[in-house]
């Protein structure tokens, strides 16, 4: 069995004030995380106050954009195409909710190395998704 990735209609993010830099960066092919300069913790999704210590001294930093699949599921009903939702644990130590794309969705595995790519929503915003990081051995 093989379910190769197909483009689907991606819902637009209904942005809140403060989210613009994240999506502006995504449109330039960059994945941003928030990092707290008080406690040092990275976090995602991005907040104006650090969810670990509530400091307002949070700054945008570029993510390496690579990580491993923590969990995933290929959703096969409810829409015109199958899609693979996943949690990807980034090298920075935070885990991001995303989709795995541009591959045979049936080949996705926990522990697989993936790298960020960007896909357009129906309204033209760009959102980070992940595809297999070819040439990198899988590991847990």
């Amino acid at each position: 069995m093989a379910s190769f990735y197909q483009d689907r209609d991606i819902a637009d993010p209904r942005m809140n004030p403060g989210d613009e830099p994240y999506f502006d960066a995504a449109s330039q092919g960059r994945l941003l995380l928030k990092r707290c300069s008080s406690c040092g913790a990275y976090h995602h999704y991005p907040r104006a106050l650090c969810p670990v210590c509530l400091s307002e001294a949070v700054e945008w930093v570029d993510s390496s954009g690579t990580g491993v699949v923590y969990s995933y599921s290929v959703t096969r009903k409810g829409g015109p195409t199958d899609y693979c939702i996943a949690y990807v644990s980034l090298n920075e130590g935070v885990t991001i909710l995303t989709n795995i794309v541009d591959c045979d969705l049936d080949s996705v595995r926990i522990g697989q190395r993936v790298k960020v790519v960007f896909k357009a929503t129906v309204g033209g915003a760009m959102v980070p998704m992940f595809s297999p990081d070819e040439g990198k051995a899988a590991s847990a």
Partner: peptide, 20 residues
Amino acid sequence: PFEIPYGAVTVNLYAMTAMR
């Protein structure tokens, strides 16, 4: 904004828990 674009729905959010 960080979940809806990924098609995060009730069933697949539980399914990822089952997969792990």
